[in-house]
Design a protein around this nucleic acid. Structure first.
Lengths: 188, 188, 188, 188
DNA sequence: AATGAATGAGGATTCATTCAT
DNA sequence: AATGAATGAATCCTCATTCAT
């Protein structure tokens, strides 16, 4: 069973990295937010860089698992897309900082290979769905990763706006944006 | 006329902030990249925070002006959208780091009100186009800023992918993505 | 009877202090080398400084006792010198780290009065032999402590060289050095 | 011309390392003793370890040069020995901490290869004299490095005693110890 | 008695900023 | 105007020590 302190450190780091970035967050800040001594962080993580990599891998894995959860393999691509979209919505609602953190750190210079691979693996899962859609002729014939990043970018941008309070969430709005995103990638 | 040194400082800061973020970039790094002494930076900017704000306002203004350039006020919304999209494409091609910098710094805690307003003004211009499109019934009736951030997010995400070399740019691909983005916001 | 754990702590500390010095040795290092928990050390010693003092006194006492062992009070000064020299040789062979530790810590700022006195007492024993030799006219009329430190310095330096493997020990070499040291202090 | 600050840092470090050892000396201690800011030290030395190595090489070189100064290549071995001894005496008088520093750091784990070599080179110079003496039959047939370390050890030990005030220096005492040291290595 | 997780003071090092040249 | 040496506050990290188990 993973220690409670480690969990608190992860939570504090996630929030702070999401809000202030990796370099803008100091280890004492994390310690204070997590209500642990600064030295305690080094009991669980070799250093700050190891912490951010471990955290990144952890949340990407969580994110990926959420999305794969109950995935309707036998449904239409349209249904699969909707499933993914709503799983992402559900995830973001429960993990406010995670998407901000992932998005703002995905290209960072301090991420190691394993972290980068974890993120690529997640995107590959999405790409596979799009590829299948292309074969069935229901998705635009553009490169799959172009389509994925369009939808991913739109989604992230949309949820940042909600999290910053500039947009109010509602089932209708979510449904509308889901439709928008599908329209962005479907075949004419 | 603004000094050559100041321009070099801006260029160096833009590149480094885009690649490493504000807190991950040191003043000596900027000085070295700009080939000026560290003290020289303080002749042009009060401090590091003033520099990032000044830079942010400068590039957002440039970006906005590029997009407004030759704006076809009398054309259809569809044409106006296409114009904006291709102006953005042209801008990003010539200013590789600017989009990365703007996107990764737009929500940062060290941006002052003026910087934030500058960015909002830019988005307002886009929103106005979308609002007009909604009134004409050619754009989806979702909130305009939701639609804007979807397109903006998609665009940024797409160009990051190109800049990281994961996607190869071509006129066809650009045209396809432009169509995708329009599909995301047009009325059914 | 002193605990086994305490002995292991002493052994570990001796080795590490000899190799890395007092300040270069951490309590966790000692704990790991001694195969005890870090907290256990504090059951036997009030703190790190108390440990180094206790250890110093212990090994100096051992060293002194070894040398005094079977001391030939009735023999000639020359014989007594030889005895001391060979007892030191025997001791160093069995306690590789002790001489290194004593020599490198004998002047240290963290040694308390008792530790310093212990070492002085040991030297006093040697001085007494030299004084007697001076009275008998077989030892040089220089100050006794000058002579002692010459012999002590030569001996330590010689054994460090052996322990570092730069010199190979042999009965002939030992005998030669013993003669050298005696020559250094004997009357002309 | 080497900076004054660097010289002050060297002086402060030499004194503190000699008195408290490398690990017992903190960088702020050095900065305060040198009357410079802590950061200034890093302008001249990459880190603390680089400082101790640079200092070690510097003082060993100085020491070696002093001893080689005016070396009487055409004199007898006995004269050469006396020359070396008195040069060492003169050096130590003017550089109180240097001998303590060299002696206590010569085997340290943080010395790099260059530092170790520098010290070995110095010893080699002494060894050459002894070798020549052995060939001429005026020096004991024991291994040259054994003889060197005996004399070196005796000398260092003797001067530590003087520096700690336990022995009062006088021309007669110096002359007596010089004779002692020669007696230690001369052929019977 | 023994442990080792937890702590926070203190150490090495960096870096935004100043200022003499 | 331009520099870069100098600074010391702030950063990352270590480690002597404590204490709950």
């Amino acid at each position: 069973m993973s220690s409670n302190k480690q969990e608190e450190i992860y939570d504090a780091a996630l929030k702070l990295f999401a809000e202030r970035g990796y370099d803008g967050t100091t280890v004492p800040m994390i310690a204070e937010t997590a209500a642990v001594g600064a030295g305690t962080i080094y009991r669980y993580f070799e250093n700050k860089e190891a912490l951010v990599n471990s955290l990144f891998q952890k949340v990407v894995t969580q994110f990926a698992e959420t999305i794969k959860n109950d995935f309707p393999f036998s449904s239409t691509i349209r249904e699969q897309f909707r499933h993914v979209f709503y799983q992402m919505v559900a995830f973001v609602k429960n993990n406010a900082y995670t998407l901000l953190f992932i998005d703002s750190h995905a290209d960072a210079y301090y991420l190691n290979e394993k972290s980068q691979k974890e993120f690529q693996d997640f995107l590959s899962f999405l790409t596979a769905i799009v590829e299948e859609g292309k074969e069935q002729g229901v998705v635009s014939p553009l490169p799959a990763n172009a389509l994925i990043c369009v939808v991913y970018g739109a989604f992230v941008s949309f949820f940042k706006e909600i999290q910053h309070g500039k947009l109010e969430e509602s089932p209708e709005l979510i449904a509308g944006i889901e439709k928008s995103c599908w329209n962005a990638i479907r075949a004419d």
